[in-house]
């Protein structure tokens, strides 16, 4: 089944990954970690520690955006 045919609940629980990037092209949505809500922050920290996988449904992160933390992290699908 192509991903576009997934029921929306499965779409929403797709795993995300955080990729460390050196530079940010113009036009990239960029947020500081202090702009994340407490729950997203929790999942974000856990995902960085490798403790927990990051699921789209658990966070308000958007594909392609960059989060500024101790490094710059790009949010992507696994």
């Amino acid at each position: 089944m192509a991903s576009s045919e997934l029921p929306s609940s499965e779409h929403a629980s797709r795993p995300l990954r955080l990729e460390c990037v050196e530079s940010i092209p113009a036009g990239t949505t960029t947020r500081h970690v202090d702009q994340l809500d407490t729950e997203t922050l929790d999942t974000f920290y856990a995902a960085l520690d490798g403790d927990r996988s990051l699921l789209e449904a658990d966070t308000d992160l958007e594909i392609g955006e960059v989060i500024v933390f101790t490094e710059y992290y790009r949010v992507d699908h696994v």
């Binding site: 530079s23 940010i24 113009a26 036009g27 990239t28 949505t29 960029t30 960059v66 500024v68 710059y72």
Partner: peptide, 8 residues
Amino acid sequence: GKLPEAPI
């Protein structure tokens, strides 16, 4: 010197 102007 790390982030360009646009994303800000």
